[in-house]
Design a protein around this nucleic acid. Structure first.
Lengths: 347, 347
DNA sequence: TGTTAGCACTCTCCTTGTTCGAGTGCTAAT
DNA sequence: ATTAGCACTCGAACAAGGAGAGTGCTAACA
């Protein structure tokens, strides 16, 4: 990407900010009025023409103003990501963080409630669609498992992790196993594996299974496979919110646009895979419009951030909105909320 | 309501069916062509004018065809509800029922999965919004409770009912209680209360609490209050699906219409209260447009049916769609699915 | 008396034409 | 390098007119 001179940059940013603020194509006259660069419209026009040639802007039609392209947004976002972003945390922001942190702390033991709260907050503060993915199960730390006999030949297995992830599954077993048997198995598992990650347990298990095959270990290994199964990520572990509010954005005044974003949310598979890819890189990431590998989302942008517990990053949160997104705000929000989550998980 | 002569009825039904089929105002000429009543358009016109005067039809504007009013739909639906409706269950319907019943049976132990499946099926078969409410907790039968110590001063309580409802809650307790204590409490509760309904247990408890106040019973009573709390209905226990598909209906081509239905879904409180009212009456019920007490839903219709386990009705399912709903189909679907659920819960 | 044909009328929708304003690109002057 | 001026383009908004669908009413008919 050839370097833009400072003046062109400033004008590009001005145009983008103006467009983000109000989705009207912005004309040269408007730029000179609103942002006092000290140049006449004609000069601005020249620069705009250059910017268009470089692919940062486009015209809906001759004689309309300019509109940022995805490439334009990308340039803008890169500059945002590059700069040190600590908007005055003394103002409302700080109050919000305190408040939100306290709320999280209250419900940190109920991971479901917590992440549904997170997605709600994200969406209501931004008016975009908020997404929250709880910690990846295999990264979490096994806390305890319990088995409960249920209706004769069924067993309910309940698993807890240190992070507060709680899952259960009802399975059919042979009715020979008594509740006592189950308790002993559970006790063994709890004492043996508490505190270790699921990944860890898995690898231990593989070695152990090779070692011996007595009944007891068979049961155990079956229990562990069960753990694995139970703790695997399921579609219902993804939290969305804000579809309703997003409809108020002018970008989605058309029903087909709404369908796009609603489809994106509905196809949890797709978005889960997409977010999974993003979760490999740490920190804030932005995916703009056509950068998105999923066809149905070429008109949408995603701003994500991973959160972590200690050193390992656990999961991520995201905002999905139109390409004409307030990236500055979105990035700030996502980053801040991720920070709160990390802090809560740590404490 | 003054009785309509047979001919007028037939014409009214024809108009409604045609309009349900395709949302174009239907004219007198069209009626004579499509449905061979053997009368000329002029005659039909006279009758239509009468029907309009009676409030069953209305004209969007002079010289457009007629459109059914809510009152018209009501008349039509009443006739549907009155008649014996057993559409040939030999055809696809029967295959569907078999298939669906089998599916339900597979997952009947996981009540969440089951009801999310129900709402999915409802919506995908009808292209309206499917709603499913799991059995009211207080009507369900307590099966067992277990307590698990968690992180020193917390306890996880897990409750199961015979119907497969499973809930859990993490509470803070004094760390004095050992896991053994907890086990004993659980064992006591399980042996004492298994098989009884929550309602039942509540009333027993009230008597017991008055009787004595020794520590043991204090613990128990606390545990039971906990049961109550855990088992109380929460907003997340309502399953919606199909908002995305509903957007394809011409009735929702306008974004403001979509907002209406999306708001109805979002405000779980409101709809929960509404459905709760409906759940007092047994069987299929239809609420058309302005019959709806909720202002935001005056343009929507709801078709519900309760399902039961044995004799007591447990919860309900519903379809929400435009007033121009295919009531015949919706009623059939809701009734059929409710039947499947009842059968599954029984078996 | 119920039904029908005929006719004038009404209203929407679509097309066409026109104007207006915003914004552009280009060129010549500064 | 910047600016003023000017001709040009395009879309939005509005008005006018015609086509089409459907109505209500009246008079004739079986």
């Amino acid at each position: 990407m050839e370097p833009l001179d400072e003046r062109s940059k400033q004008i590009l940013y001005a145009i983008i900010q103006s467009y983000i603020n109000k989705p009207d194509p912005v004309g040269s006259r408007f730029v000179t009025k609103k942002y006092a660069f000290g140049f006449s419209p004609a000069t601005i026009r020249n620069i705009m023409a250059d910017l268009e040639e470089l692919g940062f802007l486009s015209q809906p039609h001759t004689s309309a103003g300019r509109v940022p392209t995805d490439k334009g947004y990308r340039f803008y976002v890169n500059s945002l990501l590059g700069q040190d972003r600590n908007p005055d945390t003394s103002g409302i922001e700080s109050a919000f963080i305190d408040n939100f942190s306290r709320k999280l702390d209250d419900i940190k033991n109920d991971i479901n409630g917590m992440f549904s709260e997170v997605s709600n907050t994200l969406s209501s503060m931004s008016s975009y669609v908020g997404v929250a993915l709880p910690p990846k199960p295999e990264k979490t730390h096994f806390n305890r498992i319990d088995f409960m006999k249920y209706k004769g030949d069924h067993v309910v297995a309940v698993i807890l992790t240190d992070e507060g992830v709680m899952k259960h599954k009802i399975i059919k077993t042979d009715p020979l196993l008594s509740q006592d048997d189950l308790n002993r198995i559970a006790e063994y598992l709890n004492s043996e594996y508490a505190g270790r990650t699921i990944d860890d347990i898995k690898s231990v298990l593989i070695g152990r299974m090779k070692a011996d095959k007595v009944l007891w270990d068979k049961l155990i290994s079956r229990a562990i496979t069960l753990c694995e199964e139970i703790l695997s990520f399921s579609e219902s572990d993804i939290y969305f919110s804000g579809l309703h509010d997003v409809m108020n954005l002018p970008d989605f005044s058309d029903i087909s646009k709404i369908k796009e974003i609603s489809k994106a949310i509905k196809d949890k598979h797709t978005i889960l895979r997409l977010l999974d890819q993003l979760s490999n890189n740490e920190g804030v990431q932005v995916m703009i419009g056509n950068e998105n590998p999923v066809d149905e989302m070429k008109n949408l942008s995603i701003v994500t951030s991973t959160y972590k517990e200690g050193d390992s990053h656990m999961g991520l949160i995201a905002l999905i909105g139109p390409t004409r997104m307030d990236y500055s705000k979105a990035i700030f929000m996502v980053e801040t909320v991720a920070g709160c989550i990390s802090r809560t998980l740590k404490g």
